[in-house]
Design a protein around this nucleic acid. Structure first.
Length: 757
RNA sequence: GCUGCUGUAGCUCAAUGGUAGAGCGCCACCUUGGUAAGGUGGAGGUUCUGGGUUCAAAUCCCAGCAGCAGCUCCA
């Protein structure tokens, strides 16, 4: 006999080999009908799985359990794949997992699946659901399993077994009618459990997320136990899209992006700039209190600076091209880059070919070149033509035998050319300020702060509103500290980030500690330093009782970091605040301070930005407040709405008084009806509306409407003297009171265990 | 960068290969009002750009640019 411990605390004895379905039937008919899967010792299993171990915790999962929905969605992915296999014979299946809000299946099909195919795929799925056939699990020894998927002509499954699953003695499959899929499970008992589903989108995704592998089609869908739940979800999704910062930014005239200026470059309009200015003052005040010193540095710096820091040319592809004074240097720079890379992938090849065409050099030969070596040879010939044709003297280039040597020769020459780079980071500039004077241990920590604008050439596919841009301003600072000061300073900065986030009511974030991946050679520095630094960060966060996850391989190349990650209205994650430890740049720039022992020591750097970037922070904030900023941030705090033009003069007098008290006020003196003016002010998310008419003018008061209270009568605060309104608002501003945040989350931000509440 | 979708008035969107439209906004006039849309009229277009097919292209084809979704990337 084996013992089952049920959720209500009771126990049940059943013979070995009993299935969860039978247990459910033993408890009650309704439970058996509602059963979707079972949770045994924390593991979710099929209802038909035989129970074998001695003492088990046991729970039947029904529609009410969130975990059941995950099982349902995974099964729905199978149903979708089955429908696709019927309509697209020969389609190859890859992976098809459940997601937080749905599921996908990666499919390789010829002809490709298109969005216009969705209706017939959905129709086929409907048939499968209506048939309500069971999901049947069976196992095969791994060699037989491989033979089975091979016979089914499922190449990706074969590859997956060969690459990762061959270490297991046996593998499980699920059969549903004619459809068999290699799958770990678990699944719902039969397809009829799927109450409502919908295909949502299709997009490319690389096989095993590896961009050197084939790109497959990822079919996204979602499903629920009931049509009502699906409708609710789709409605929430629509609501969430309404607070998209790209939509609100346009509607509320906060920012714009002009193709004339360029992709990914934000133009802050007056209202957006007002909010940003307030945020900047807010953080500046905090920094002054915390011993920071302001600095200003330029937007560009010499290439040599970034060669030393390692940013150039290491992040070459992520930067705007360098600016050389010598017009030929740009071309040789490109050639150097290609030669030093030692290979040319398809993109670089295309880019280089275009350049050759433009320059009129050797393009036909290059085009005909097949191997990397041949191509590099053509690159080399172009360099020779340039060097000899223009008459530049680089003797070492002609003597060089290999492409690597040639690259080095070019690099030597390039280093002598004056060139500049749009700064990709502020640290090299701040480092120069640190180095501008000798430093004693008594001076440390040195904390240099700047709203520093940096430029990074993000790939086109990455650009997104304000959250992923090519030019942005970090609320940056660099701390130069002794090793002993690390803990206190990092801690103080974690507290600063927490203070900033809580000041804005941004509570839905997660904390990520990025550590190095010891397998990777991306990271520089002493492993012992890394160990210590990583542990310091973990201890700090743990001591503050924060939810966090340690993520290997997420560190910066120079040190581990603590990131504060939030989600946007459609569930994408963005890093905002960050605190990073750096042992690398102090070495590269040979930073020093004189210690108490009168010997020189190397400081440690802390990079940190509580907001991250002003652009991204603003984007997230717009969505967080759905455009309805709290009073202290609202670009327009009060709008005067006279009942008719007869009261414009009184309105203007009130406007002037309120403005004199420091409030941001406007007046609507158009010959429109009061309803119309109030509607418009509400839609523009002005927090307070002031109505002035006959009564107010006579009594010397104003009637106030509070947008946060609603749309009808409930929003009326009644009449009060101007002074009273003014002091009331001043108080709200001073407290930086937050009265409403967006709730239109589409269930996208409150279901993940990673996020704290 | 890759895959797919999209690009029409300031905004949101219509328009079988056959004269480019609506609502909102804007301007003018009428209306002067009491807490979320008063009325009438008017202006506003290189249908993203460049090629091509066709008697004829917003519409079909090709290329480019841009946006959206996802993947890869993110110092």
């Amino acid at each position: 006999m084996l013992t089952l411990k049920l959720p209500d605390g009771s126990t049940k004895q059943v013979p070995p080999g009993t299935r969860p379905r039978q247990v459910a039937e033993g408890i009650g008919k309704r439970l058996a009908q509602a059963a979707v899967a079972a949770k045994v010792n924390g593991e979710i299993v099929d209802l038909e799985r035989e129970l074998n171990d001695g003492e088990l915790s046991f729970q039947i999962l029904t529609e009410k359990d969130a975990e059941a929905l995950t099982v349902l969605r995974h099964s729905c992915a199978h149903v979708m794949a089955r429908a696709v296999m019927r309509l697209f014979p020969g389609a190859q299946l890859a992976f098809g997992p459940a997601l937080e809000n749905g599921f996908y299946y990666d499919i390789d099909s010829d002809p490709p699946i298109r969005e216009e195919d969705f209706p017939r795929i959905e129709a086929e799925m409907k048939k499968i659901v209506a048939a309500a056939e069971p999901f049947e699990r069976f196992e095969r020894g791994t060699p037989e399993a491989r033979a089975l998927v091979f016979d089914m002509k499922q190449g990706y499954k074969v590859e997956h077994i060969d690459e990762e699953l061959s270490k297991f003695p046996s593998l499980s499959f699920y059969r549903q009618g004619e459809f068999i899929d290699l799958c770990r499970g678990p699944h719902i008992p039969h397809a009829g459990k799927i109450g409502a589903f919908k295909l949502l989108s299709i997009a490319g995704a690389y096989w095993k997320n590896d961009d050197s592998r084939k790109q497959l089609q990822r079919l996204y869908g979602t499903c629920f136990f009931s049509q009502k739940d699906l409708d609710t979800y789709l409605h929430q999704l629509e609501e969430a899209k309404k607070r998209d910062h790209r939509v609100l930014g346009k509607q509320l005239r906060l920012f714009t992006i002009s193709q004339q200026v360029g992709s990914g470059l934000i133009l802050w309009m007056p209202k957006g700039a007002t909010i940003r200015g307030i945020l900047e003052s807010f953080i500046k005040d905090e920094l002054m209190k915390r011993g920071y010193q302001p600095v200003y540095t330029p937007h560009i710096g010499r290439l040599e600076l970034y060669r030393t820091s390692g940013h150039f040319p290491y992040y070459r592809d992520a930067q705007f091209p360098p600016m050389y004074f010598n017009y030929i240097a740009g071309a040789l720079d490109l050639i150097h880059y290609r030669l030093s890379a030692g290979e040319l992938d398809a993109d670089k090849e295309k880019q280089f070919q275009e350049w050759l065409d433009l320059a009129g050099y050797a393009a036909p030969f290059y085009r005909a070149a097949k191997t990397t070596e041949e191509k590099l040879e053509r690159v080399h010939e172009s360099a020779l033509k340039l060097i000899d044709g223009i008459g530049i003297n680089i003797p070492k280039y002609h003597e060089a035998k290999t492409h690597a040597e040639r690259a080095a020769a070019l690099n030597d020459w390039l280093k002598e050319q004056e060139g500049y780079l749009l700064k990709p980071m502020n640290c090299p500039h701040h480092i120069q300020i640190y180095k501008a004077e000798p430093r004693s241990y008594r001076d440390l920590p040195v904390r240099l702060a700047e709203f520093g604008t940096v430029y990074r050439f993000e790939q086109t596919g990455e650009l997104s509103g304000m959250t992923r841009v090519r030019g942005f301003t970090q609320d940056d600072a660099h701390l130069f500290v002794t090793p002993e000061q690390i803990e206190v300073e990092v801690g103080a900065n974690v507290d600063l980030v927490l203070f900033v986030l809580s000041s804005l009511g941004l509570n839905d974030y997660r904390v990520r500690i990025g550590t190095r991946d010891p397998e990777s050679n991306k990271y520089v520095g002493d492993p012992a330093d890394w160990e210590k630094a990583e542990q310091t960060l973990i201890d700090l966060v743990a001591a503050r009782k924060m939810n966090y996850s340690v993520e290997k391989g997420e560190a910066a190349f120079y040190g581990p970091k603590i990131d504060f990650v939030v989600r946007d209205c459609i569930g994408r994650e963005w890093q905002l605040g960050t605190v990073q430890l750096d042992y690398n740049l102090p070495k590269r720039f040979e930073l020093e301070y004189v210690g108490a022992d009168n010997r020189t020591h190397r400081p440690v750097m802390i990079h940190r930005a509580p907001f991250g970037s002003m652009e991204r922070f603003m984007g997230i904030l717009i969505e967080h407040f759905a455009g309805a900023f709290p009073l202290w941030l609202a670009p327009e705090q009060v709008r005067i709405c006279p009942v008719s033009e007869r009261f414009s003069d009184y309105g203007k007098k009130v406007e002037a008084e309120l403005r004199a008290s420091g409030l941001r006020v406007t007046g609507d003196y158009r010959p429109e009806k009061i309803n119309y003016k109030l509607r418009e002010a509400s839609l523009e998310k002005v927090p307070y509306m002031v109505i002035v008419g006959e009564k107010e003018q006579t009594a010397g008061t104003v009637s106030v409407r509070d947008r946060a209270l609603g749309e009808g009568k409930e929003a009326e605060l009644g009449a009060m003297p101007v002074a009273e309104l003014s002091s009331r608002l001043q108080k709200e501003i001073q407290e930086r009171r937050i009265r409403q945040v967006s709730t239109a989350s589409a269930g996208l931000s409150d279901t993940s265990a990673k996020f704290s509440d």
